[in-house]
């Protein structure tokens, strides 16, 4: 089943066309990896999926982005959209408050008031981000005092806490050491059970390890999209082959 169905998507920053005629279907409860050289539009595309691009002055989107069949650029409440389509940023960005308040932030913003309910959400979210055992005695500590890897998992837990359907992850491990990275990769594989995950990465091994499908972007165009195994074993495009074998990018 398709979670996202995107057709003829163009995106302009003022007059600069950052995405050209993107057509792609993203499968439900699957991990899709976006790869491509720096500046090819991966982050830009990711941000069209939860309309974070709305924050950018002069950003214009045309075409169709269907989430479960509804065009998110037409009569959709962006706050509800972003609740359904969560995002984890490249640089861990926990709020300057306690671990507990970080996780409870989203649910509170969506009207959850009961302490018991919040407690439960916090525990569950931290568990699903595989960080509950490390932090259960430090819930009142400021999140900014944690390590980068822990902070990133807090951000994942924070995103999970509003029970999204999709998780967008923009290079979630690029600021982390190998151990934290592999923890997050394991986590992503577990989260796949419940969420549709799209992950941007510069790390070919990571894309190969975690994703089911891979999309290769170049200069704002989607060059190739298919099963990760196929893309990495026998890419149909010369450019894809060149990129994944490290010849450019």
């Amino acid at each position: 089943m398709n979670k996202f169905s995107i057709s003829q998507l163009y995106l302009y920053y003022d007059n600069f066309c950052a995405l050209t005629d993107i057509n792609i279907d993203i499968e439900d409860k699957n991990i899709t990896a976006f790869i491509g050289p720096s500046g090819c539009g991966k982050s830009t595309f990711l941000k069209t999926l939860n309309r974070m691009n709305d924050l950018v002055d002069g950003c214009k989107v045309t075409g169709e982005v269907l989430l479960d069949g509804t065009n998110i650029y037409k009569d959709v409440d962006t706050n509800l959209l972003r609740k359904r389509v969560g995002m984890v940023f490249q640089k861990p960005n926990p709020f300057p408050m306690s671990v507990y308040d970080n996780i409870a932030y989203g649910p509170r913003a969506h009207g959850v008031k009961s302490k018991a309910m919040l407690d439960e959400i916090v525990e569950k979210s931290l568990q699903s981000a595989a960080i509950w055992d490390e932090l259960k005695d430090r819930l009142r500590k400021p999140a900014l005092a944690l390590s980068g890897g822990q902070q990133q998992r807090i951000c994942i837990a924070r995103a999970v806490a509003v029970s999204p359907e999709v998780l967008l992850m923009d290079e979630p491990t690029s600021a982390l050491d190998p151990i934290s990275t592999s923890k997050i990769e394991d986590l992503v594989l577990e989260l796949k059970e419940k969420y549709t995950i799209i992950i941007v990465t510069h790390n070919m091994q990571q894309a190969a390890r975690v994703s089911d499908k891979t999309a290769f972007f170049l200069l704002g165009e989607l060059i190739e999209y298919g099963n990760t195994n196929d893309i990495f074993s026998m890419p149909t495009h010369k450019k894809t082959e060149g990129y994944i074998s490290g010849r450019f990018g």
């Binding site: 939860n50 974070m52 924050l55 706050n79 509800l80 959209l81 972003r82 609740k83 359904r84 969560g86 995002m87 940023f89 640089k91 960005n93 926990p94 709020f95 300057p96 408050m97 932030y105 989203g106 509170r108 913003a109 969506h110 951000c155 924070r158 995103a159 509003v162």
Partner: peptide
Amino acid sequence: VPESYYEGSLALGASNEWSIFFVILPA
């Protein structure tokens, strides 16, 4: 206050006003 806090809040589906009151002002 770093813009990343604000973006983090919006990305959770919090409204603009909520983000200002509960992330930016506390920060």
